[in-house]
Amino acid sequence: KELVLVLYDYQEKSPREVTVKKGDILTLLNSTNKDWWKVEVDDRQGFIPAAYLKKL
């Protein structure tokens, strides 16, 4: 499984997104879309802008 580091706080703006904090380490589920990556946060799955994440 691939992990990503959150570079900036992000507040979800729709039900398909998730809220994260800078410094969080998340499981990356899908990065095929270059703009929005799907991650897992506390048993929730959702999207975050790829620019907010860095692969570890």
Score class of each variant (00 low, 15 high):
Arg16Ala: 12
Glu17Ala: 05
Asp43Asn: 14
Lys21Ile: 08
Tyr52Leu: 11
Lys22Ile: 05
Thr27Ser: 11
Val39Ser: 00
Leu56Gln: 06
Asp42His: 13
Ala50Gly: 05
Leu5Met: 13
Asn33Trp: 08
Leu26Glu: 00
Trp37Arg: 00
Asn30Gly: 07
Tyr8Val: 10
Tyr8Phe: 15
Phe47Leu: 09
Ile48Val: 15
Glu17Ser: 06
Asp9Trp: 03
Val39Tyr: 00
Val41His: 09
Val39Met: 01
Val41Ser: 12
Asp24Leu: 08
Ala51Leu: 13
Leu56Pro: 02
Gly23Thr: 01
Asp43Glu: 13
Lys1Pro: 15
Lys13Met: 11
Asn30Phe: 06
Tyr8Ser: 11
Leu28Pro: 00
Arg16Val: 12
Leu5Asp: 01
Lys54Thr: 12
Glu12His: 07
Lys21Arg: 12
Asp9His: 06
Leu56Trp: 08
Ser14Gln: 08
Asp42Phe: 12
Lys38Trp: 13
Thr32Glu: 15
Asp35Ala: 13
Val39Leu: 04
Thr19Trp: 03
Glu17Trp: 04
Leu53Asp: 00
Leu5Gly: 03
Asp42Gln: 13
Lys13Thr: 15
Asp24Arg: 10
Val4Lys: 00
Leu56Gly: 03
Ala50Asp: 02
Trp36Thr: 03
Glu40His: 08
Asn30Val: 09
Tyr10Trp: 10
Leu28Thr: 01
Gly46Ile: 11
Lys21Tyr: 14
Leu53Ile: 07
Leu29Lys: 06
Lys34Gly: 13
Arg16Cys: 14
Tyr52Gln: 04
Leu56His: 06
Leu3Lys: 13
Tyr8Cys: 09
Val41Thr: 14
Leu5Arg: 07
Leu3Met: 11
Gln11Glu: 15
Leu28Asn: 01
Thr19Pro: 02
Gln11Lys: 15
Trp36Leu: 05
Ile48Pro: 00
Val20His: 02
Leu56Lys: 03
Ala50Trp: 02
Tyr10Val: 01
Thr27Trp: 15
Asn30Asp: 14
Gly23Met: 03
Asp35Glu: 14
Lys22Val: 06
Leu7Cys: 06
Thr27Gly: 08
Lys38Phe: 15
Leu7Ala: 03
Tyr10His: 04
Pro49His: 04
Thr27Phe: 11
Asp35Asn: 15
Phe47Lys: 02
Pro15Met: 08
Val20Gly: 05
Ala50Val: 08
Lys38Asn: 07
Trp36Val: 05
Ser14Met: 08
Val6Asp: 00
Trp36Ala: 03
Leu26Ser: 01
Leu26Met: 04
Lys22Trp: 04
Trp36Tyr: 11
Ile48Lys: 00
Leu7Arg: 05
Ala50Cys: 08
Leu53Val: 13
Ile48His: 00
Ile25Phe: 05
Lys54Ala: 12
Asn30Met: 09
Asn33Ile: 06
Asp24Ala: 12
Asn30Tyr: 06
Ala51Met: 15
Lys38Glu: 12
Arg44Tyr: 06
Leu7Glu: 03
Leu3Val: 08
Arg16Trp: 15
Trp36Asn: 03
Thr27Ala: 11
Lys55Thr: 08
Val20Ile: 05
Asp9Phe: 03
Leu56Ile: 13
Asp35Ile: 14
Leu26Arg: 03
Ser31Ile: 06
Asn33Glu: 10
Lys1Val: 14
Glu17Gln: 12
Leu29Ala: 04
Leu56Arg: 03
Val41Phe: 10
Val20Phe: 03
Trp37Asp: 00
Tyr10Gly: 00
Tyr8Asn: 11
Glu2Leu: 11
Glu17Cys: 05
Lys38Cys: 09
Glu12Pro: 10
Ile25Lys: 05
Ser14Lys: 08
Thr32Val: 11
Gln11Cys: 11
Thr19Ser: 14
Ala51Val: 13
Gln45Asp: 09
Trp37Gln: 01
Glu17Thr: 06
Val41Glu: 02
Asp24Phe: 07
Lys1Phe: 10
Tyr8Pro: 00
Pro15Asn: 11
Asp35Trp: 15
Lys1Ile: 15
Leu56Val: 11
Ile25Leu: 07
Ser14Ile: 05
Ile25Pro: 00
Gly23Cys: 06
Gly23Asp: 06
Lys13Asn: 10
Leu7Phe: 02
Thr19Cys: 05
Trp37Ser: 02
Lys1Arg: 12
Lys55Glu: 06
Ala51Asn: 12
Leu5Thr: 06
Ala51Arg: 15
Lys55Tyr: 08
Leu26Tyr: 05
Phe47Ile: 09
Gln11Trp: 15
Leu5Pro: 00
Lys34Thr: 11
Lys54Ile: 14
Pro15Tyr: 09
Lys22Pro: 02
Gly23Asn: 07
Arg16Lys: 14
Lys13Arg: 13
Glu12Tyr: 06
Lys13Gly: 08
Lys55Asp: 04
Val6Tyr: 00
Gln11Ser: 15
Gly23Leu: 02
Arg16Asn: 13
Thr32Asn: 13
Leu53Thr: 06
Asn33Tyr: 08
Gly23Phe: 04
Asp24Lys: 07
Lys1Tyr: 15
Ser31Trp: 11
Phe47Pro: 00
Asp42Met: 12
Val4Asp: 00
Ile48Cys: 10
Ile48Met: 13
Lys21Leu: 07
Asn30Glu: 15
Lys55Leu: 14
Val6Ser: 02
Asp42Lys: 12
Leu7Asp: 01
Lys21Pro: 01
Gln45Met: 10
Tyr8Gly: 07
Asp9Ser: 10
Val18Gly: 02
Leu53Met: 05
Asn33Arg: 12
Gly46Tyr: 10
Gly46Trp: 06
Ala51Phe: 14
Leu29Thr: 06
Leu29Pro: 00
Val6Gly: 00
Gln45Tyr: 10
Arg44Pro: 00
Phe47Arg: 03
Leu5Tyr: 10
Thr32Lys: 13
Thr19Leu: 02
Arg44Gly: 06
Glu17Leu: 04
Lys34Met: 11
Glu12Ile: 12
Thr19Gly: 05
Tyr8Trp: 12
Lys38Ile: 11
Arg44Leu: 07
Trp37Glu: 01
Glu40Thr: 08
Lys22Thr: 07
Asp42Tyr: 14
Val6Lys: 00
Val18Thr: 04
Lys13Val: 08
Arg44Asn: 06
Leu28Tyr: 01
Leu7Pro: 00
Ile25Asp: 00
Leu53Cys: 12
Lys22Met: 08
Lys34Asp: 13
Ile25Val: 11
Asp43Met: 10
Arg44Gln: 07
Asp9Gln: 04
Leu3Cys: 10
Phe47Asp: 04
Asp24Trp: 15
Lys55Trp: 07
Lys54Pro: 01
Leu29Trp: 05
Glu17His: 05
Leu26Asp: 00
Lys1Cys: 10
Asp24Thr: 13
Val39Arg: 00
Asn33Gln: 10
Val39Glu: 00
Thr19Asn: 05
Phe47Gly: 02
Thr19Glu: 02
Val18Ser: 02
Val20Asn: 00
Ile48Glu: 00
Leu28Phe: 03
Glu40Gln: 15
Val20Pro: 00
Phe47Met: 08
Asp9Pro: 07
Asp9Gly: 06
Ile48Ser: 03
Asp43Leu: 11
Pro15Thr: 09
Val41Trp: 07
Asn33Lys: 07
Thr32Ala: 15
Glu17Lys: 05
Pro15Glu: 14
Thr27Asp: 06
Leu26Trp: 06
Leu56Tyr: 10
Lys1Ser: 12
Gly46Leu: 08
Leu53Ala: 11
Lys55His: 09
Lys38Pro: 01
Lys55Arg: 14
Tyr52Ser: 07
Gly23Pro: 00
Tyr52Lys: 05
Lys21Ala: 09
Leu53Arg: 00
Leu26Pro: 01
Ile25Gln: 04
Lys38Ser: 09
Val18Phe: 08
Ala50Glu: 04
Gln11Pro: 06
Val6Leu: 01
Glu12Ser: 14
Leu28Val: 06
Val18Glu: 02
Leu26Thr: 02
Thr19Arg: 05
Asn33Phe: 08
Glu40Gly: 09
Glu40Arg: 10
Glu2Trp: 11
Gly46Asp: 02
Thr19Lys: 04
Tyr52Cys: 08
Leu3Pro: 04
Tyr52Ala: 12
Trp37Val: 02
Val20Trp: 04
Glu17Phe: 05
Asp35Val: 14
Lys54Ser: 12
Asp35Phe: 15
Ile25Ser: 02
Glu2Val: 15
Thr32Met: 14
Asp24Tyr: 08
Glu2Phe: 11
Ser14His: 11
Asp43Lys: 10
Arg44His: 08
Glu12Gly: 14
Thr32Trp: 10
Leu56Ala: 05
Pro49Gln: 04
Glu2Gly: 12
